[in-house]
C-alpha cells in the first residue's frame, strides 16, 4: 500500500514547484499507472516514494511505514526500477544480484531459486556471468528488474519500465506486474505508453505541472473528457487544459 498525503517538492529555493500538494492512495492488489507530460513531476514523485528525495511538505507511507520514521523498513518493502538502468558496470551480473541479495537479506537458497527463475524468464542466464559493461541497454534494464524483484517486494515501483525492453521481455514484465497484483501486492509505475496503461492499470493518475489533475479507473477518466474514445484522447484533452 502507498499513501501520499499533501506532498510538495520544489527546486531552486521554491521557484520551481515539481510536485504541488499531491495526495493519492494505492491499495494492495492494485496496479496504478502514473501519467503526465515531460517535466510534470512523475519522476520526482517516484523518487520521493522510494526515499531518493525528501519531500518539502507532507508525508508518504509505504506498507504502513512512514518514509521519514522507518526508512529502512520502507526500502525493504520496495522493489524499485529507475528510468535509467545505471548499475555498477565493473561488476558481473551475478555479483550485482549477490550484492542486492546481501543487502536485502535474501537467503542463498531463496535468491538462487528466484534469480534462476527470473534470469530464465528474461533470457539472461547465459550472460549473467559477464561484466555489466558488456550488456546492452535492454539487458541492463532486465538485470535491474531482476534485482528489484529478488527480495519479492510488497510494493513494486517502476519509472518508465518498458523503455529498452524487447517485446517478449515487455510482455513478461506485464505478466509479472499482473501476478504481483494478484498476490495482493502493490504496483506503481509511470509510463508514456498509454496503451499499456489502459490495458494494465486498475487506476490511473495524471499529473501536470506538479498537480494531480485526474485520478481514477479508466471509466472514471473517460467521464472527465469530451473525447472518450481512447486513453490517448483523454490524456491529450486533460493535459491541454
Amino acid at each position: 500500500m502507498i499513501e501520499i498525503r499533501n506532498v510538495s517538492k520544489s527546486y531552486n529555493k521554491g521557484q520551481i514547484k515539481a510536485v504541488d500538494d499531491l495526495s493519492l492512495q494505492v491499495q494492495p492488489g492494485e496496479i496504478f499507472g502514473f501519467l503526465g507530460p515531460n517535466g510534470a513531476g512523475k519522476t520526482t514523485t517516484i523518487k520521493m516514494i522510494v526515499g531518493l528525495l525528501e519531500p518539502d511538505r507532507g508525508s508518504i507511507v509505504v506498507n504502513g511505514y512512514d518514509i521519514r520514521k522507518d526508512p529502512i523498513k520502507v526500502r525493504k518493502s520496495i522493489g524499485f526500477v529507475p528510468d535509467n538502468p545505471s548499475v555498477y558496470e565493473r561488476l558481473t551480473g551475478i555479483e550485482y544480484l549477490n550484492f542486492l541479495g546481501d543487502m536485502y537479506d535474501v537467503p542463498r537458497a531463496v535468491r538462487t531459486k528466484r534469480a534462476k527463475e527470473l534470469l530464465e524468464l528474461f533470457e539472461l542466464t547465459g550472460d549473467v556471468g559477464n561484466l555489466i559493461q558488456s550488456y546492452s541497454h535492454g539487458m541492463r534494464q532486465k538485470l535491474v528488474l531482476i534485482g528489484a524483484l529478488l527480495h519479492a517486494p510488497d510494493v513494486f515501483v517502476l519509472d518508465e519500465p518498458m523503455v529498452g525492453l524487447d517485446p517478449r521481455s515487455a510482455h513478461n514484465l506485464k505478466e509479472i506486474m499482473s501476478r504481483h497484483c494478484q498476490e495482493g501486492k502493490t504496483v506503481f509505475f509511470s509510463t508514456h505508453i498509454l496503451d499499456v496503461a489502459e490495458r494494465l492499470c486498475d487506476r490511473i493518475g495524471i499529473i501536470r505541472r506538479g498537480k494531480l489533475i485526474a485520478c481514477g479507473t479508466m471509466d472514471q477518466l473517460r467521464h472527465m473528457a469530451n473525447n472518450k474514445e481512447t486513453l490517448e484522447n483523454v490524456f491529450l484533452e486533460l493535459t491541454e487544459q
Binding site: I94, T112, K116
Partner: peptide, 27 residues
Amino acid sequence: SPGRRLRWDELDFRFSEASPIRAIARR
C-alpha cells in the same frame, strides 16, 4: 567482449551469501 555463457545448472554454485558490511567492502 563477453565471456563464456553460463549454463542454468552452473548458477547454483555462483550465488553466495555475505553480511552487508562485507558485501559493501567487496563491492
